[in-house]
Amino acid sequence: MIQKEIDRAERGTFHAAYDLGIWDILIASFLSMFAFAPLLSVSMGDFWAAAVFVPIVGAVYLTLLLVKRRLLVPRIGVVRLGPYRQARLRRLSVALLIVNVVALAAGTFFAVRFEAVGGLAPVIFLSFILLVGFSLAAYSLDIPRFFLYGLVLAVGPFIGEWLWRKGYASHHGWPVVFGTAAALMVAVGLIKLIAVVRGHAPLGDGPLAGEDR
C-alpha cells in the first residue's frame, strides 16, 4: 500500500516536473528538419539545407528554456530528482546516444552506397531506428504517448515512399510525413504546455520565503 504510494509519488513527481509538453515541441522542431531539408536542398545543397536547422533548433531550445524559467518554474516549482530516476535518465541518454551513432553510421552508408543498397532497405532501417528510439524514450520516461509518436514515425516512411512512388509527393514523401508528424507533436506539446500554465497560478515562494520560518 505504502510502496504503491511511493511509486505513484515518484512517477507523479517526475511527470509534474518534466512532462510539460516541452520535449514534444523540441523533438518536433528537430523532426521538421527531415520535412524541410529535402525541399531546401534543391536550392541550398544537402549540407546547408541541414545546417540551417542547427540555429533553428537552437533557437527553439532557448525559447523553451525561457518559457520554462519564466512561465513554468514560478507555477510548478523546482525538483532535484532522486537517484533512481537520475540513473534511469542516464541509461536512456546512453541508449539514445548508441541509437544515434548507429543511425548516423547507417545513414552515411546508405548515402554513399545508395545505388548498391537501393529498394526499401533505407526506409525499413529508418522506421526501425525511429521506433526503437521513441520506444526507449517512452519506456524510460514513463510517457506512453512517445510510443504513439514512434509508431506514427515508423509507419510514416513507408507511407511517404508509397506517396512518392505514386507521384503524390516529392522527396520520398518526407516533407508530408515528417511535416505531419512534427505538426502533431507541436500540437500535443502546446496543448500540454497551455494546460499546465492555465492549471497552475504562479505561487512564488509563499510565506516560506519570509522571515517567519
Binding site: I2, E10, G12, A16, G77, V78, L203, G206, P207, A209
Partner: peptide, 29 residues
C-alpha cells in the same frame, strides 16, 4: 513520501504535490 522519492524540491513544488496550503505546509515542515 514526496520528499523520499527525490533529492530535494522547492516549497512551490511541495505545495503543488501535496495540495496543502502554505500555512499548513509551513506548520508541518
Amino acid at each position: 513520501i514526496q520528499l523520499y522519492v527525490v533529492e530535494a524540491m522547492d516549497a512551490t513544488f511541495l505545495v503543488n504535490r501535496t495540495g496543502l496550503t502554505w500555512g499548513n505546509l509551513s506548520t508541518h515542515l
